[in-house]
Amino acid sequence: MSKSPNLNRREFVTLVSTVVGSVMTAIVGIPAIGYILSPSLRTKKTDAWIPLGKLENYPVNQPTLFTFTRSITTGWEKTVNSYGVFVVRKSDTEIEVLSNVCTHLSCRVNWNEEKQEYICPCHDGRFNIDGKVDSGPPPRPLDQYEYKIENGDLFIHLKES
């Protein structure tokens, strides 16, 4: 059974349309996917030592909240991000710097002096003075910052990527 020439022609045009159509879709479509996704895939790079002032200003065994800001540019918009850390001084030289962001859903925790706990206001997650989970939903202890002390000044290493 031989096909008529006309049918061949049709098949040919169908084939060409499919190929040309796919090529065009690919040439526009693949860049378009990159175009839409690229800002979401871009990693924000922060790597800086933040000065937190004189170490002696921080009382021993008393978590003290220190807030600072960093300016960031997203797209064409410049904003200032705010960060909070708890500085806990164990002794003259030994300290811990804890993030105030709850490890559960990123609410900000507060230090409760009476209960000697960090309490998250959102889902009642509780952390002890070292940031270990006491109770509630948080999956892991509060994040710690790397720190250094230079000439009595405390610095923490802010690293985000």
């Binding site: 049709r10 045009v13 169908t14 060409v16 349309s17 040309v20 065009m24 040439i27």
Partner: peptide, 21 residues
């Protein structure tokens, strides 16, 4: 119309597409 006219349309449109890129 199909396939004869479509074929020509396709060739021209694809040419324009290449030109655009």
């Amino acid at each position: 119309f199909f396939p004869d006219i479509i074929y020509k349309d396709l060739v021209v449109s694809f040419g324009l597409f290449i030109l655009l890129i």
